[in-house]
Write a protein that binds this DNA or RNA. Structure first.
Length: 540
RNA sequence: GCGCUCUUAGCUCAGCUGGAUAGAGCGGCGGCCUUCUAAGCCGUAGGUCAGAGGUUCGAAUCCUCUAGAGCGCGCCA
């Protein structure tokens, strides 16, 4: 934004000592008062009284129409030329390009990372979509993004998976099996039957990796249908084979962050606690609440140790920033992982961890109680086939990540304003429809500056806010802001539609002009949807 | 017992990391289709921002405590 930089520069050139960090221009809360407001006077109060200086400066600024002050704010109304330029830029570039702040920087976003023991279910969807949109946002701002999935293919769960497949093979060979043949940790899902068949056909030499590959094929296929492409699948087994566990041990040991000791029992963990000496990581040094075990009592590595090794591997790949996306049920891992990364990278590799909360699923208002054991969980595939990828992506991304919310299978495909995605698509479809109709009359969009109306400006202002919302979404890693913004934009458009008849064959010039204005909206929706990876609809 | 996250209108959610009179939708009430998609638009009613303190020019937002909800808490991953 030009005005704010001009004001800041003017202030600094006269008062070089000023701290202007908190000075911002924002869209004016009250439309009657102006277009933009600044808190400068209030924020700078302690450093001096700069009101008359700023007001004078703004009054003489070439793109400022009027200036007023109320309740400590300075409000400005911009000249129409400003909005003319904004719309021209949108029509030319298809958007409003924020300056690319991430050019050259590399970033690794790890998300989904579901154990390869079964198909993705709907409980995995939020993490997958949220992580993917975080990655998309970084793409948008010019970072080099790696989308990564960590495959837990080394633990006891995988052994149980292999046993489960072997049991299914037995079943294929005319040995009837019952529920009793499955031990508690085994997987009795019928999705393993085709895997067993494949094993029989191909007789692989490495059974375990063969099975994991089949599971990962299914998972990536489901992800693809949700619009997600993972760049790098990193195998836990591979990390271990490459000796990263030992490397991590060595680094932490040399730093003096390891010791053998006994953890205190968690409070309320009365009778069944048995004190055991373990190899511990001194994560309390880095802000954790308690030290964390790298080895079990028997000297074998813990799951956490594997995670530490994996993050050392990520550090060794020299990204500027690492991001992990966890479900709320893994929030307990944040501090210990960040401690480990801090220790191993010497504080040089920032690790941001974002969690998204659980989702309550409902079908026509009835809560779904899923249990993996009972086998009544809904697969992601089933949901995609039932309602499509876009409603899932939009809904999963449209809520603040740290709040739980209700996801009703029926409500997200309703064709009413209550369904935000529909409402936005409706705006887009209306624009496409009227453009098509105008074209059949030989009328194409064409912007006429001198026809710019107050209603046009009202709509252009909303388009102008796009780049600011994108910046905020990135800054806070909160893609839901984009969804919220699009809904507001759609609201403004629908109001505009009701007030201003777009197509009038008797008035071709005004028709051209209004079409050009709504093409701006169309382009912004398309650009935002590209980031969300949602397909805009030309008709409903 | 401890930790993390949450609590905003009857319901579902926003609230621009401390700014102006806290906003939308649904539901309620009342209006708007001979013209581009009424799958929409307009008006109206509805609030002690869970509660109590604190920080300051200013708090839904930051801190402390209390209550309630969800998730988690070595020897699973």
């Amino acid at each position: 934004m030009l005005v704010i930089d001009d004001v800041k520069n003017a202030l600094l050139s006269k008062y070089p000592h000023l701290n202007l960090d908190k000075v911002v221009f924002e869209p004016c809360r009250h439309h009657e008062l102006g277009d933009l407001s600044t808190n400068a006077v209030m924020v700078l109060k302690k450093q001096g009284d700069f009101e008359s200086f700023i007001v004078d400066f703004l009054t003489n600024h070439p793109i400022v129409e009027t200036v007023n002050t109320t309740k400590g704010f300075i409000n400005i109304r911009l000249k129409k030329e400003f909005w003319v330029e904004i719309l021209k830029n949108i029509l030319k570039d298809g958007e409003l390009k924020p300056h690319l702040e991430g050019q050259g920087k590399t970033i690794n976003v790890e998300y989904v990372s579901v154990n390869p023991t079964g198909p993705l279910h709907i409980g995995h969807a939020r993490n997958a979509v949220f992580g993917d949109m975080i990655a998309s946002l970084f793409d948008y701002f010019g970072y080099h993004v790696t989308r990564e999935y960590y495959v837990n293919d080394a633990g006891g769960q995988i052994d149980a998976l292999v046993s489960s497949v072997q049991l299914r093979i037995k079943e294929l060979n005319q040995h009837p099996i019952t529920d009793k043949d499955f031990s508690a940790d085994m997987y009795r899902g019928t999705y393993l039957i085709p895997v067993a068949e494949k094993v029989q056909q191909e007789k692989p030499t490495h059974l375990k990796s063969f099975i994991v590959e089949r599971m990962m094929e299914a998972i990536s296929h489901d992800l693809k249908d949700l619009g997600i492409h993972i760049d790098t699948f990193t195998s836990e087994q591979n990390i271990l084979n490459q000796g990263y566990l030992e490397k991590a041990f060595k680094i932490l040991h040399e730093r003096g962050d390891l010791y053998h000791g006994v953890l205190p029992p968690p409070k309320g963990h009365d009778g069944d606690w048995e004190e055991r000496e373990q190899l511990l990581f001194k994560s309390t040094t880095y802000g954790d609440d308690t030290d964390r075990p790298l080895q079990k009592h028997d000297g074998t590595w813990t799951y956490f140790a594997g995670d530490v090794a994996y993050h050392l591997y990520k550090i060794s790949r020299h990204y500027d920033v690492l991001i992990d996306v966890f479900g709320a049920d893994h929030a307990g891992h944040i501090l210990k992982l960040q401690s480990a990364v801090h220790a191993m990278s010497g504080g040089n590799t920032p690790l941001h961890i974002r969690t998204c909360q659980m989702v309550n699923f409902l079908d026509q208002g009835v809560p779904l109680r899923m249990s993996k054991r009972a086998g009544n969980f809904v697969t992601l595939r089933d949901l995609i086939e039932r309602i499509g990828k876009d409603p899932i992506r939009f809904m999963m991304a449209s809520r603040h990540p740290s709040t739980t919310f209700d996801f009703d299978f029926e409500k997200v495909v309703e064709k009413t304003k209550e369904n935000h995605l529909f409402y936005i698509q409706y705006a887009h479809a209306r624009i496409c429809s009227v453009l098509k109709r105008a074209k059949s009359h030989g009328i194409e969009p064409l912007f006429h500056e001198h026809l710019l109306s107050d209603d046009d400006v009202f709509l252009i202002k909303m388009m102008y806010d796009f780049s600011r919302q994108m910046v905020l979404s990135l800054k806070h890693l909160e893609p839901h802001r984009i969804c919220q913004y699009l809904y507001d934009l759609a609201t403004h458009f629908h109001q505009f539609w009701e007030k201003n008849r777009l197509l009038n064959v008797d008035e071709p010039v005004i028709t051209q002009h209004r079409l050009a204005v709504v093409v701006g909206v169309q382009k912004i929706i398309q650009r935002a949807f590209k980031v969300l990876k949602i397909d805009p609809l030309d008709e409903l």
